[in-house]
Design a protein around this nucleic acid. Sequence first.
DNA 1: ACCTGAACACCGTTCAAGT
DNA 2: ACCTGAACACCGTTCAAGT
Lengths: 201, 201
Amino acid sequence: MVTKKKQYHHGNLSRALVTKAIELLEQEGISALSLRRVAKETGVSQAAPYSHFKDKQALLTAVANEGYARFGQRMQHEAESGKEQDYLVGLGRGYVFFALENPGLFHLMFGGELSKLIDVNAIHEEYGSSYQLLVDAIDKTPLKRFSDSENKPLDVAFAWSLVHGIANLLQAERFTTETYGYQDVEPFVDDLLRRYLGNTA
Amino acid sequence: MVTKKKQYHHGNLSRALVTKAIELLEQEGISALSLRRVAKETGVSQAAPYSHFKDKQALLTAVANEGYARFGQRMQHEAESGKEQDYLVGLGRGYVFFALENPGLFHLMFGGELSKLIDVNAIHEEYGSSYQLLVDAIDKTPLKRFSDSENKPLDVAFAWSLVHGIANLLQAERFTTETYGYQDVEPFVDDLLRRYLGNTA
DNA sequence: ACCTGAACACCGTTCAAGT
DNA sequence: ACCTGAACACCGTTCAAGT
């Protein structure tokens, strides 16, 4: 029953490296994520990754892309779960929860380790499609609260910023929910999102 | 006229290291910021910084603290400049502009390189006082737009998140202002802040 | 085509030793 | 007290060589 232990060479090394990198990233944080460790713990020599990725950036880009895919799924899942009637608020919940559940990945995806040198196009597919979820939601039902002068693009920027700020500040422990009189994150996030982003509240 | 070239030993090495670190951070980004380079370019041996800082984290913490001080000043300056009547919106302008003007520092201050291992108290003085600016502004004039049920703490979290999200996304080039039909950042930021955060618009 | 082992220039950190 | 030089274990990356 113990197969695929020592014979990569099938084209799965590339995927195995990405998987191991995510594992390391979430368990020990981004500073522990060295190419050499990823290689070693995948059971392969330090130079082997270079057969599949141009350099460390390229591996990180692949990891981030996997992250964007999961991110979009998480948002959509939350929005459609029925826990929240307002679809846009549901997406916001998914956004924030993803950040809290996958701090390493989230940090890599948005923290700028990549964005300095990255080939932006290399990331755009998955990233763009998660972004598109927000755009679509706002296209369907613009924010009534600010409907005095309709401006959907600005509404998108607003929603994106609000939710991104909440996710970042919570994850970096810049807010602590106790400061605001909440014991748990979830109701805190819900109140914030419903009150300032939702149409129903 | 050429003094203080080779005789540290006065207690200024510590400050010189922080200054050089900020310079490197802004010129070449956080990945170029190695302790060894900071030491070398300050004209001192690789081990010298350890006489003043416990480790690299400690130096970075000092750098971040200097950053928080400048950050608070930038916000206050902008809010009091008279370019914007709404004090809170002025603070928001300062917040966002600081991020765009000092991407390296901003990234260090909020990006989590520190927040994982940091002694949170070591940063709290300067950080707290910049945060306090927001709290005070909202204490004085709560957000009228959401005054249906007064909740100032939540208003603070909202304002902080919105402004932090805008700053981050702009700085990481996650938005490009052209997407939203603006040529310059400034009017884009103003419209966002006035429309969703201001009381006057 | 995919992988290894050795090599290079760089890290952070420690420690004995100098002033 | 403050600094140096050498050392250690780690990096990312390259390159000849193996299969």
